[in-house]
Computed example of a mutant assay.
Amino acid sequence: MTVLEVKGLTKAFGGVHAVNGVSFSVAAGELLALVGPNGAGKTTCFNMLNGQIPPDAGDITLNGASLRGKSPRHVWRLGVGRTFQITATFGSMTVLENIQTVLLSHHRRLFDFWGRAARRHIAEGMALLERVGMASQADRPCAVLAYGDLKRVELAMALASDPRLLLMDEPTAGMAPRERIELMALTAELVREKNIAVLFTEHDMDVVFAHADRIIVLNRGELIASGTPAEVRADAQVQEVYLGSGAMFGHGPEGSP
Results as ranks from 00 to 15, higher is better:
131 R>V: 04
107 H>Y: 15
126 M>A: 03
155 L>I: 10
140 R>T: 02
183 L>W: 08
137 Q>C: 11
158 A>M: 07
110 L>H: 03
119 R>L: 12
85 Q>A: 10
116 R>C: 09
88 A>H: 08
136 S>A: 12
159 L>K: 12
149 D>G: 06
80 V>D: 00
194 K>F: 15
136 S>V: 11
191 V>I: 15
178 R>P: 00
149 D>H: 08
138 A>H: 01
67 L>N: 13
122 I>M: 06
146 A>D: 02
120 R>Y: 06
152 R>P: 15
192 R>F: 08
158 A>P: 15
143 A>V: 05
104 L>G: 03
130 E>Y: 02
157 M>T: 02
85 Q>T: 11
179 E>Y: 13
156 A>T: 02
90 F>I: 03
83 T>M: 12
189 E>Y: 09
73 R>S: 12
112 D>E: 00
172 T>H: 08
164 R>I: 02
188 A>D: 04
115 G>P: 03
122 I>Y: 05
90 F>R: 01
99 I>F: 01
131 R>Q: 14
117 A>F: 07
191 V>C: 14
98 N>A: 06
123 A>R: 15
93 M>F: 14
100 Q>S: 02
178 R>K: 15
178 R>A: 13
129 L>K: 03
119 R>S: 14
185 A>H: 13
138 A>V: 00
169 D>P: 11
164 R>F: 08
163 P>S: 11
159 L>H: 13
97 E>F: 01
93 M>W: 07
167 L>I: 10
120 R>W: 10
81 G>F: 12
130 E>K: 09
176 A>M: 12
172 T>A: 11
132 V>E: 01
84 F>N: 07
127 A>M: 07
127 A>S: 14
140 R>G: 00
74 H>I: 12
111 F>K: 09
126 M>E: 01
153 V>F: 03
117 A>D: 05
69 G>R: 11
186 L>R: 09
156 A>R: 05
89 T>A: 09
139 D>K: 06
128 L>A: 01
82 R>V: 10
191 V>E: 05
159 L>A: 05
99 I>D: 00
159 L>E: 08
122 I>L: 10
192 R>V: 04
84 F>W: 12
144 V>R: 01
190 L>H: 10
172 T>Y: 09
172 T>C: 14
102 V>N: 02
175 M>S: 06
89 T>K: 01
119 R>E: 11
191 V>P: 15
187 T>Q: 05
149 D>N: 09
159 L>Y: 12
111 F>P: 00
104 L>V: 06
122 I>A: 04
116 R>E: 09
185 A>C: 09
163 P>R: 07
166 L>Q: 10
141 P>N: 07
81 G>N: 05
112 D>C: 00
84 F>P: 04
193 E>F: 15
68 R>L: 07
133 G>W: 03
83 T>N: 12
125 G>E: 02
123 A>K: 15
162 D>H: 13
112 D>Y: 00
68 R>A: 10
80 V>Y: 02
170 E>Y: 14
88 A>L: 15
165 L>D: 11
127 A>E: 11
188 A>G: 07
75 V>H: 06
174 G>I: 09
131 R>N: 07
137 Q>I: 09
152 R>V: 09
102 V>G: 03
94 T>H: 02
195 N>M: 08
90 F>E: 01
181 I>L: 14
109 R>S: 08
73 R>F: 14
